[in-house]
Amino acid sequence: MTDFSRIESSYRQCTLIVDGPNIEQSVARCWDRKPTRNERIQWPALKRWLHDLAAQRSAAAYSCVFTNTPANPPPQLLGWVRALVQDGWHVFAKPKANNGDGDIDADMLAHLSAHPWTTVVVVSHDAQCFARPLTELAAQGTEVIAIGMTEWAGCLPNIDGITFIDIDDIPALFEQAPPRMKLTALPDNGDWFHPVGDGDISYAA
């Protein structure tokens, strides 16, 4: 187990926190179904982005994914965790309780305070969890970056002191990008949003 509180703090440190369940659910909502492998986040691309960011700041990088697991984890979940670890990710997995509670918010926030990070990057749309802690870190002089989909991120894109980056701006993050519904990126002459599935098409009996 990694004890981040014992990391040498004499040089700059950058950490990336991915709220796994939140991001996976948001991508699935865009597709209105379970996404295929090509439609999911490409984790090596996100890790490359972090390392490029850390290199620009002459900082060490720590990439972390937080997730929860059901009582009987399916084999593909173990395969996903194994692939992340082999690619250099730190993975925190927490079992869901019998009542369905396996919330990882407190664990992610504990990681934020486990070390005097110079740069914190959070990939999540959970403004209720992160808005205040990230604002407090920014006020203390920490560089704070949030990554997500603007339309799902609540107040996170509009908080002073937090740099918000839309997932579309992370190179190669998706092989096939999810369909988005962004009212903030409409052309001056407007645009159409088309129905999912058959829409209002009807067939005569």
Score class of each variant (00 low, 15 high):
R37N: 06
M1L: 10
I201L: 14
N22V: 13
A131C: 05
N189T: 12
T135Y: 06
A61W: 03
G102F: 00
P178I: 11
D200Y: 12
S124M: 04
W89T: 08
A60H: 09
D87M: 08
F174Y: 04
I201A: 13
Q42P: 01
R40C: 03
D126Q: 10
D87N: 14
Q176L: 11
V81H: 04
F164H: 09
W80I: 14
A97N: 01
P187D: 08
Q25A: 15
P74E: 01
P171K: 00
H51F: 00
Y203W: 15
P75A: 05
T2A: 15
A204K: 14
I17R: 08
Y11R: 12
R180G: 03
S5M: 10
P178T: 09
A61T: 12
Y62N: 03
A131S: 14
E24C: 06
S63T: 05
F193N: 06
T15L: 11
S124E: 04
E39N: 13
A54G: 10
N38S: 13
L46G: 00
D103F: 09
N189L: 11
D107K: 05
V85R: 12
K94G: 13
P133A: 03
I41C: 00
D3R: 05
A71T: 00
L109D: 03
H115W: 07
E151Y: 05
A146D: 08
P195R: 13
L186G: 04
T142Q: 07
D103C: 14
F130C: 11
I147L: 10
D19P: 05
P187C: 06
D198K: 14
M149C: 13
T118V: 07
V18Y: 00
F66V: 01
N189E: 15
T118M: 09
T69I: 01
F193M: 06
C129K: 04
T2H: 14
A127E: 08
D32F: 11
F174A: 11
Q176C: 13
L109T: 07
D166M: 09
G102K: 00
I170T: 03
G141H: 05
S63Q: 12
L16I: 06
D19V: 05
C64G: 04
C14Q: 08
H51C: 08
A71E: 00
G141P: 07
T142K: 07
E175H: 06
M149N: 14
D191E: 09
D52G: 13
I170M: 02
R29C: 10
M149R: 15
R6N: 12
F66W: 05
P74W: 00
A60W: 06
R82Y: 07
Q56S: 15
D3M: 04
R132L: 09
Y62G: 00
P178W: 11
Q140I: 14
I7L: 15
V144G: 02
R6L: 14
L78K: 03
A153V: 07
I147H: 04
G102N: 01
N99I: 11
A127L: 02
G102T: 00
A172N: 07
N98S: 06
M149S: 14
F130K: 13
R57H: 15
G161H: 11
N22L: 04
K94I: 01
P70W: 00
G88S: 03
